[in-house]
Design a protein around this nucleic acid. Structure first.
Lengths: 339, 339
DNA sequence: TTGAAAGCGCTACCAG
DNA sequence: CTGGTAGCGCTTTCAA
């Protein structure tokens, strides 16, 4: 007896006169079904207002049609970073094509357990890591449960997973070369956080380029800005305190550059006249600052799109592959050459 | 016989020697269970590596532990708008407390069907609308299926749902009053999109204040900026073409203000010396522009937090309630008074 | 090509 | 307080 609750396959079966199995075949678009029956069944579906019960389907062995997307930043920081918007736009492009949705999970220390539980309890068909910390084992835990993953960023230790990353070292190297070419002579760096790989490699690329041309670069000319606006402002203050004569700064993200610009203005330094800035990400933010930022970026949209494709491939059981993007520099006002 | 696949309640039952029902009670933290048994069962859970199967639980009548969060903007725009980050931070604060996760859904015309299907097929326990369009019936469709909702923004036509909004009209009114008080004399508005309620009411508040003091305000002094940076830049150009002598502009969002500033700079207009700007949202963006923006905002974090609480209440079957926030103006550089 | 029926893993009810 | 057991709504053999 059907009550007033949600109609089920059973209801559609009764109304149409066909079996549950047949209805199931129709809604799944399985081949071998008589076209006439398909028509009748569809009519019955319409009539009953039937909707797939996703939990039942997932339990019976189907998929959840959702991908977990893991961040390490909180939403506040996340949404100040228009770079992520570009990446997610790309991810969305590939996932929505096959009718997958995304659940966003913030893996901060406070919510680690919660996130882990959600991921491991079968809520998602796969997990896409937009940033990985080596401080917790979320990634390896997920892999241990045979849940497909794909990772944005450099390869993790010895874990063989599909990933897409940018060549961060090359980014740093390009920045150093360009600043010098534009006429800067005393360089500094506003780096990100300690544990973050992107920060490590970008800085490394910068310093090792300088080393290769025998430019003496002091360790104290690198200050950590934590990938936030406020952090970058503080780091800039510190940097200029120790090196008041700096005339070229490599900032590891556009978001941080907004903080750097603010602090420099406060200190009475003009950009680019007194100090040139090369930023990273080449996100929309680089266009909305004053002056606009010369910035080094990968194609974030393409990266995200590829990342989405990789997770779908992983879910389909295809062998893992990884891709590295090359960065390029977009010249804008913050490095205009001194006349 | 248990194979090598995921351990189930049955496995834990066998290992611990207790019944499936008892195990179920333990993992659900139900009261009436002998503490000693709880201990033993937990040991067995550990030993087997048991994990709740969420689909089975959902099917058997439990909940999905996830809330759908619906936007109308794409991710690219979303992440340029740091305002949303604040709101979501608040939403997250209430939802994560009770172990709920959020799936983000973009309800653009291209993906409407997909989103609707996802929501109506039982993937989520409730839906939180961060922006509602009156152009589609997503909200009413969801309500029709008895899925709990809460809405960010003004009440929708005659649909009785819990919502939280800001008093947008008051925002506009405050902006007009303040610009005049600071000495601006010829005013203009960069509004949002046509269908968006927030835009409508903010503009209305502005113009009706002016009307109330018998200030003559021309219709052509309002230009639509579509709530994007580029749109606002174009609108500004148009506005100044029609009214070259404007000296005070009310911009309906911080994101748009970045576009306005950019265009004004391009046109050689100084802010605030030549033209003052009052923005809205009071988001982090207002701090990272040059000059920093005087901006009118509600407490976005509190709004989001409340929104999360409302959806939880709705899920719990409590009666709907709604809250309106009053805006306040934060004075910064973009309206510094002429000497 | 279609139908019958056995689960998927859990919750919740009813006995004891 | 604990155990037995009947579903939840779907997919998926296996027969017909």
């Amino acid at each position: 007896m059907s009550t007033s609750s949600r109609p089920t396959l059973e209801d559609v079966a009764r109304v149409s006169g066909y079996s549950r199995a047949t209805i199931s075949r129709v809604i799944r678009n399985v081949d071998n079904v008589n076209p006439r029956i398909v028509l009748e069944v569809n009519k019955a579906i319409e009539k009953t207002g039937y909707r797939i019960n996703f939990a039942a389907r997932a339990l019976a062995g189907g998929s959840t049609q959702t991908i977990g997307v893991v961040f390490r930043e909180n939403f506040g920081d996340l949404f100040q970073n228009s770079y992520w918007g570009q990446v997610l736009e790309g991810v969305y492009a590939s996932l929505s094509k096959v009718n997958y949705q995304q659940v966003f999970l913030i893996n901060d220390s406070e919510h680690f357990r919660q996130v882990e539980q959600y991921l491991l309890n079968g809520h998602v068909d796969g997990v896409l890591f937009l940033s990985v910390s080596e401080e917790d084992d979320l990634l390896t835990d997920v892999i241990a449960r045979d849940i497909p993953v794909s990772v944005f960023g450099p390869a993790i230790r010895n874990v063989p997973v599909p990933y897409v990353n940018g060549d961060e070292q090359m980014g740093g190297s390009i920045a150093a070369e360009f600043l010098l070419k534009q006429g800067a002579e005393r360089l500094g760096v506003i780096s990100g956080g300690k544990g973050i790989n992107a920060s490590k490699y970008r800085t490394l690329g910068f310093t090792s380029y300088l080393e290769s041309i025998n430019y003496h670069f002091e360790k104290s000319a690198t200050q950590a800005g934590d990938f936030t606006r406020e952090g970058a402002a503080k780091a800039t203050e510190e940097l200029l305190r120790k090196h008041p004569d700096i005339d070229g700064i490599y900032v590891l993200s556009d978001l941080m550059s907004t903080g750097v610009l603010e602090k420099l203005r406060e200190l009475g330094k003009r950009v680019p006249e007194d100090i040139m800035l090369v930023s990273m990400d080449n996100s929309p933010t680089a266009l909305s600052t004053n002056p606009q930022l010369t910035s080094i970026g990968y194609n974030a949209f393409d990266g995200g799109k590829l990342l989405g494709e990789l997770i779908l491939e992983a879910i389909a059981g295809k062998p893992a592959r990884s891709v590295t993007f090359m960065p390029s520099l977009i010249e804008r006002e913050s490095t205009k050459r001194k006349k």
